[in-house]
């Protein structure tokens, strides 16, 4: 098995072992809703502390970068995000907890990355940003940060329903030479060690997430690609319809969990 299952990063020593000590077993406070647990509850106390402290959380640099870009005029229309949306703390408050959404005007599901790019190209007449570019990670992190602590609640009925069904089917489809589905690791084996990693429920409420292994934040779709590749499956493109549908399903799995952006993980 490739990737993180085989990787013996130095951080392993730091992140395996005792696990969190801040909570008693089975009492994860806001990080657990019914049987749904944030990846936070599977992280070590050190990793949790890094996420909790705004000054120690390395991903806050990207949030700050996003905040600057929010107020900066870019593109031929001479506008910034702020020109149309004003105070992000108010206007973006529910974005992180409700996306992806079905966007009627384009007739498809849209996540925060795609929505940002649509604003850039259509409203600002500026260039689209690439997934996982510094600019995109910064802006998505800043926008989702405005929903910090909001319970996740994506809409899965109406026109979103077929996307939801597609994502749900994806989740249990075996893939790759290792012939595994997402559910094998994140439903059947959450809490079990696979090599040096404790499997979590694979929740999406902390993205873009700062991974110690990456030494930077990454999008949820980047994580999907990694999970596909580690079972030796051909990944889909970031932003593909397949991953958008999967994003909706994954966000629904985490309904009620608080938005944690930017989370820190092993």
């Amino acid at each position: 098995m490739k990737g993180e299952i085989t990787a013996l990063a130095t951080i392993v020593a730091l992140t395996t072992g005792a696990g969190a000590i801040a909570f008693a077993a089975d009492d994860w406070g806001k990080f657990q809703v019914e049987d749904r647990r944030s990846g936070y509850t599977y992280a070590t106390a050190e990793t949790q502390a890094m996420q909790d402290d705004e000054f120690a959380n390395p991903a806050m640099l990207w949030v700050e970068h996003g905040e600057e870009a929010w107020n900066k005029v870019d593109g031929e229309a001479g506008k910034s995000c702020n020109s149309c949306h004003g105070n992000a703390a108010e206007t973006m408050k529910t974005v992180g907890s409700t996306y992806p959404v079905f966007a009627k005007d384009i007739g498809k599901l849209e996540n925060v990355e795609d929505r940002i790019n649509r604003c850039r190209t259509d409203n600002m007449k500026a260039k689209a940003w690439k997934y996982d570019s510094q600019n995109m990670l910064g802006m998505v992190s800043y926008v989702k940060r405005q929903s910090l602590g909001q319970p996740m609640s994506v809409k899965i009925d109406g026109e979103a329903a077929p996307w939801f069904e597609k994502g749900k089917a994806f989740y249990t489809q075996r893939r790759g030479q290792l012939d595994m589905a997402c559910s094998h690791c994140h439903v059947d084996n959450a809490g079990n060690m696979i090599r040096a990693n404790t499997l979590s429920q694979g929740q999406g409420n902390g993205f873009p997430t700062y991974r110690l292994k990456w030494q930077k934040p990454g999008s949820l779709h980047r994580r999907f690609r990694g999970c596909n590749k580690q079972v030796r499956a051909r990944p889909f493109k970031t932003g593909s319809d397949e991953y958008l549908a999967l994003e909706l399903y994954v966000m629904w799995r985490g309904r009620g969990l608080p938005v944690e952006t930017p989370a820190v993980r092993n």
Binding site: Q173, R174, R175, G176, Q177, L178, D179, M180, H184, C185, D188, N189, N228, K229, R232, A233, R234
Partner: peptide
């Protein structure tokens, strides 16, 4: 969840380098 270590058929989207080969 255990992989089949000596099988080549019936897989979905195997990465090119591993296509058609048993583990």
């Amino acid at each position: 969840i255990m992989p089949a270590f000596y099988r080549t058929d019936g897989f979905e989207r195997v990465l090119k380098d591993f296509e058609g080969k048993p583990m």
